[in-house]
Design a protein around this nucleic acid. Sequence first.
RNA 1: GCGGGCGUGUUGAAAUUGGUAGACAACCCAGACUUAGGAUCUGGUGCAGCAAUGCGUGGGGGUUCGAGUCCCCCCGCCCGCACCA
Length: 920
Amino acid sequence: MDYDFRAIESKWQQKWASEATFKVKEDSSKPKFYVLDMFPYPSGAGLHVGHPLGYIASDIFSRFKRLKGFNVLHPMGYDAFGLPAEQYAIQTGKHPADTTAANIARYRSQMDRIGFSYDWSREIRTCDPKYYKWTQWAFLKMFAHWYDNDCAKARPIEQLEEIFALEGNAGVNAACGDVPVFSAQQWASFDKKKRADVLMQYRIAYLGETAVNWCPKLGTVLANDEVKEGLSVRGGYPVEQKKMRQWQLRVSAYAERLLDGLESLEWTESLKEMQRNWIGRSQGAEMLFKVENGDKTYDVTIFTTRADTVFGVTFMVLAPESEWVPKLTSEGQREAVAEYLDYSKKKTERERMAQTRNVTGVFSGSYATNPLTGEKVPVWISEYVLSGYGTGAIMAVPAHDSRDYAFAKKFNLPIIPLIEGCDVSEESFDAKEGVMCNSGFLNGMTVKEAIPAAIDYVEAKGIGRRKINYRLRDAIFSRQRYWGEPFPICYQDGLATPLPESALPLELPSITSFTPAENGEPPLARAEGWEWDSYPLEKSTMPGFAGSSAYYLRYMDPENDSALVSRGANEYWRDVDLYIGGTEHATGHLIYSRFWNKFLYDIGVVCEQEPFRKLVNQGMIQGRSNFVYRIKGTNTFVSYGLKDQYDTTEIHVDVNIVSNDRLDLEAFKKWMPDYANAEFVLENGEYVCGYAVEKMSKSMFNVVNPDNICDSYGADTLRLYEMFLGPLEQSKPWDTKGIDGVHRFLKKFWRMFYRGEQWMVTDTAAGKEELKVLHTLIHKVESDIEGFSFNTSVSAFMIALNALGELNCSSREILEPMVILLSPFAPHICEELWEALGHKESISFAEYPRYEESYTIEDSFEYPVSVNGKMRAKIALSKSLSPKEIEQAALASDALVKYIGGSAVKKVIVVPGKIINIVI
RNA sequence: GCGGGCGUGUUGAAAUUGGUAGACAACCCAGACUUAGGAUCUGGUGCAGCAAUGCGUGGGGGUUCGAGUCCCCCCGCCCGCACCA
């Protein structure tokens, strides 16, 4: 019997599906293990060979853990709401629901061919009302809670109302917007609208006006992580800053906990660092500067991390968008300031970034008083100060901040050095080190001492306080788009009012045109009767990250109609033990999910503070493009090695008609009508193509479809090869060239069992050497899987197989465990052989072979021997010898005579179990 | 600029964490078998040299009996953030 992978693979895939082999339920008799893949957005292009890389790794891990006796939850679903389907709908008029369903069907059939052990009974789709009911539910909960900084926890909004009624808001330490202080009496006097406005400032999901990323081309606002370098991540369109009233999530309230939580996680240091940078905690102080404009005086608060440098403040700067700007602009400067504001407003985010070193600004006309020196310093306005960070106003210390320095040089403002011996004639001295001077009571202190001393001083004087600032901003949560979750919010007399929970899910109405409505409103304005109880419903929808923020919880209990997840299911599965996915979600999904989970934790819905215990980032698989070279103006193509002798054009050629960089000439002629009559200039009778590593994409004809690999080599070969390609975390180009190696390995493995029609396995007892090979392999594979070193474990199988082949091994005692060991990697062939070995149950329920150290421990060790630092020989010696005996045995050894001869031995250094060094 | 990571044959990569560098594959070469095939098997394959041997992990220095691995400097590449006060 030959290794007929096509028959074997379809047989077992059908069997796994019909017998629901991988269906799991809570089972308190077994330890749980939750392995999760980042669920895919089902795009129209289908899966290419890079997508399954992480899925294969997680599948190997799942199958391995299952064999080790764990109850493994390994689900899959689809992140099915999103922009591309809607953009496609705008172009073609096809409803996103239809295209999404078709794409999902395609994804599913592609995944099925690879032989994953998912429990498909738990499949979820974020666009399914039964699923997004719970996305909407979580939103309502966030709307109904506020964040109490004192107990670092979300609390019900009713409790806040009680506090307001009793004592006003002065004693409340909440994460909230700008709210003036009010008393209980004032609260009682507020009307309904006023109260709603105040409460809105406290809610965790709130409607608020801020500068947002507005993308005119997509017609929607975007979150910070959806914008890269001033362009939208989806589509690459320009993004501008705009003030808008939008739904937001108060993620910033959780900044500290999001930061602290990182400590306990088994994530890579670089990923944690990315999140730390994104959260951007910085410790410093707020300080009051009195600013006079004509006869009016204002208290302007600034934020600084360098309180020690107050004595060097020579001017102040406001962000152009700061609300202080109109108040602090003097009559005489009004025109100049207006002109500057106009200029800075016109710039897109991208232009602003491109001109980072271009210093611009305008004098406001007013002066601030340095609170420590009493000196008057001018107040300027410049776009180098950002409105969104700190207070939108800074004290400028040109001597010790490079940006202030550049500004001071440009506008001829004074520069006062504050650190002994520093030279600020050419550039600022930004380092936080040295001894203070020109700084009154701080003189003589080091910078490290001076910072707290300065803050203590301003705190005592009542003109400042310690303050921690975060870069993390609240997440903009509305999108002026159709294909997303509708908000369960209606507007009663203009007041945002939550729908009752019983109204969930609020289903997305079907519409036929997906462009914004004539009045500029989102597409949902086109839906007839889009109202609740005759009140208009919110017309924007939720962003992509809404549906993906808690999906891992829903897998625990996907059918539950009365709760996001039942307490029982949540307490059993708890958190994700292993999460595999790309780094691109570092500052998006992985922040939002953690935030969402912490909120659910606060309100008692989940029992773990962190959702993803261990996280592994698989690398991207790039494409390897091939080129042919057409001689200009002809239909003749010249081989790579000869192309420099002609004037040629480089043309991408479909990698599927190229093998080992050799072009299949006949296939090429059929590939495109233009090339039907192509002629070739060959080298050595072959056409050699050029190549380059590029992103895998249709336009470069370098997309390799996993279906094709399954057709010609089988899923088991694909799985092994993807792992063999290199370390999981590393990005690497896909190159089909080496795939024959692993395919050959599987064929050889098969031949250990069947040679022709002959069944090779016997019941002869295994020899010592064979057992040694087996147990070395068990040990290696086990530690490699736990350490995510899948490439080396594939190698280990090849080494073991070569060794067993040499030993002519046919013993069931060896081969049966081999089948179990290999099954996580190549499940189909192993199931087939397992059955042939006489087993009725699926191999998934076999027991993982136990590693026996006694078979691999050597009683002797081959000592490398160096003479004068050079390796000269290897001598096998018993492990039980003492260093003295080792030395004697080595010196007496024949193998060394040649190197030592008659010379006197000066010194012998013996490292037991390692090496013997001889110095002569 | 700041942060994280990396640099080993023609190629993908190993190296028990300080112990004979290049395992295992791909490519290439030679041979065997053959129903002549992109099947299978065997052997070779870091570089130089007929050989003994010498040289080899981006470059330079250091620690050590011993360094791909640890320390310092330099060069190069990748990723993330970037006027965050």
